[in-house]
């Protein structure tokens, strides 16, 4: 049943304009970050790690939150249009599964976005003339933990998009959330604020160090948030009058 729901969500995304955002948006911060890195090469001496800080500076606070906002709003917008909620909720499937399917699809999209960011990172580093081997292990960890942090944001955004019917407003909330994430990270509270967990997971501030609070508390925090938002949103889906 769940697989069927995933297939349904996939059909909604088939030839959807979100793929344009997926392809184009990470290219801009990669270019900006690389140019910034090249302009400050005298100060940024840690090669790949320095380049990562420059790439994620723009990606984590502006681009990825917006992309997640777009993915979530698009999936929810499909239901808001033409009273599709009524059709969807009359299907013989538990409502929590509908939410879980949407979250799974968005999570997969975040994962492939992270992979695309990683590809751009390696390409940028090579073009910028970094001769050492890219830190593949660290890069894999940043992308995986970034995806986990992104899933928290996605769960929250999907929940909010149940109420916010306007596509643009929902994306604006994600953008505002991304900026709030920057503030919480600056205040050393990045490990508890849902909108900063992604940047925290991607170690955007100090990539050469392991995560300050350790990986286990980070995984636990993310899991707790995902469960909390998923349960709350499923309850709302079950009770809301459409």
């Amino acid at each position: 049943m769940f697989l069927q729901l995933l297939k349904t969500e996939y059909i909604k995304l088939h030839r959807a304009p979100v793929w344009l955002a997926f392809l184009i948006m990470p290219v801009i911060p990669a270019l900006l970050g690389t140019l910034n890195y090249l302009a400050n090469i005298g100060i940024l001496k840690n090669e790949w790690y320095s380049l990562w800080t420059q790439h994620t500076l723009f990606t984590d606070y502006f681009f990825l939150p917006l992309m997640i906002g777009i993915y979530c709003s698009y999936l929810m917008q499909c239901e808001h249009l033409q009273h599709n909620w009524n059709k969807l909720l009359t299907m013989p499937v538990p409502r929590y599964m509908i939410f879980a399917a949407k979250l799974t699809v968005v999570s997969f999209m975040i994962l492939i976005s992270e992979l695309w960011i990683a590809v751009l990172f390696i390409a940028s580093g090579t073009i910028a003339g970094i001769s050492s081997t890219p830190p593949y292990h660290s890069l894999a960890a940043w992308c995986l933990f970034g995806t986990l942090g992104g899933m928290v944001m996605a769960a929250l955004q999907l929940g909010l998009a149940i109420f916010i019917k306007s596509f643009a407003r929902s994306v604006a909330v994600a953008f505002a959330g991304g900026i709030s994430g920057l503030v919480f990270l600056a205040k050393d509270l990045g490990n508890i604020w849902p909108y900063s967990l992604m940047a925290y997971g991607m170690n955007s501030n100090a990539p050469q160090q392991l995560m300050k609070t350790g990986y286990v508390p980070f995984i636990l925090t993310c899991t707790a948030y995902i469960l909390l938002f998923a349960i709350l949103s499923s309850k709302i889906l079950a009770k809301k009058d459409w």
């Binding site: 959807a16 304009p17 979100v18 344009l20 955002a21 184009i24 948006m25 801009i28 270019l31 900006l32 140019l35 910034n36 502006f62 681009f63 917006l66 777009i70 698009y74 917008q77 306007s166 596509f167 643009a168 994306v171």
Partner: peptide, 22 residues
């Protein structure tokens, strides 16, 4: 479909920001 103006706006915004760095 409001996704079209939204995509135009978002991609335009970031291209605009990018152009200011060049």
């Amino acid at each position: 479909n409001q996704t079209i103006p939204c995509f135009t706006g978002i991609i335009g915004t970031f291209c605009g920001v990018f152009s200011m760095f060049l």
